[in-house]
């Protein structure tokens, strides 16, 4: 069996060429592959297409907490496919506005449609007929078809070149389990991409994951890197980050009852 374990994040992203498409998770910092994103920022790869659920705004950088977020990648992007380009509190389009003026292309989609298009990409389907978006501005430029009396829009599959995945545990074959809502988009992203790179809390021996609990089988995972204890998004650093955001009044009110 080929060794899938890489010793550094830089090595794991070293072959990503300019113009590549990358799919990765982002619900705020939850489930984000911060170390792989950071390595790609360091590498400076250009003209990327990013497929993601949202972009975390840079204003959430916390002093003393190492962190990367998808907004760091904005200067390197040619195109983004996403359902979220802003949040209420910061204004619509707030995350991308400056870059759109400089030529960034934004393809809006609903989140469920994004999931279905990634599934279609993973399963080698030619596309999907989708009831969501009918009668909205998302209709523009899409084939409309009536099936059994209901209107649908044709949506193309998404087959990204790379997926950055944030797992909890991996074994040496690349079998993955996730932790809590970190799972979210990651399993379908791992299946849709041609090359899937996972950063994980722990790498365990074969047998260290109960086969009944495997969520993403190792066939979908090409590279694994362990997140060091003091690295971005580690359990320890994340805990410290939550303490810090609790000190910021507007974020505390946003994220806590």
């Amino acid at each position: 069996m080929k060794n899938k374990v890489f010793n550094s994040f830089d090595e794991a992203v070293a072959d990503i060429p300019d113009g590549a498409s990358i799919v990765t998770e982002c619900w705020g910092t939850t489930g984000m592959s911060q170390n792989l994103i950071d390595a790609l920022v360091r590498k400076g790869t250009k003209n990327l297409t990013l497929i993601t659920h949202n972009l975390l705004p840079t204003v959430l950088k916390l002093e003393g907490i190492p962190s990367a977020n998808l907004a760091d990648l904005l200067p390197q992007l040619k195109k983004i496919i996403t359902p979220v380009v802003g949040i209420q509190q910061l204004g619509a389009g707030a995350f991308v506005k400056d870059y759109v003026e400089k030529g960034l292309e934004v393809e809006l989609t609903s989140h469920g449609t994004l999931a279905s298009r990634l599934y279609a990409g993973a399963a080698d389907l030619g596309g999907i007929y989708n009831p969501v978006g009918v009668g909205t501005i998302l209709e523009e430029g899409k084939e409309k078809r009536v099936i059994d009396g209901r209107e649908y829009l044709f949506e193309k599959p998404i087959k990204p070149d790379y997926a950055f995945i944030r797992g909890h545990k991996a074994d040496f074959y690349g079998n993955l389990v996730y932790w809590g809502v970190y799972r979210a988009d990651q399993p379908v992203m791992a299946m849709a991409a041609k090359c899937t790179i996972a950063e994980v809390d722990e790498i365990v021996e074969l047998g260290g994951i109960d086969p009944e609990h495997v969520v993403t089988p190792g066939i979908f995972v090409d590279r694994i890197v362990k997140v060091p204890e003091d690295a971005m998004g580690s359990v320890k650093i994340t805990k410290a980050a939550i303490g810090k955001i609790g000190e910021i009044d507007f974020i505390r009110k946003l994220l806590f009852k």
Partner: peptide, 27 residues
């Protein structure tokens, strides 16, 4: 607060017996 247990708005919640976790396609 545990980063692994948040809602779609990023708010933290407490895990309880009977809850289910799943991926986005299932969701």
């Amino acid at each position: 607060a545990d980063q692994h247990y948040t809602d779609a708005g990023g708010r933290y919640w407490k895990p309880i017996p009977g809850m289910a976790l799943f991926d986005i396609v299932t969701s």
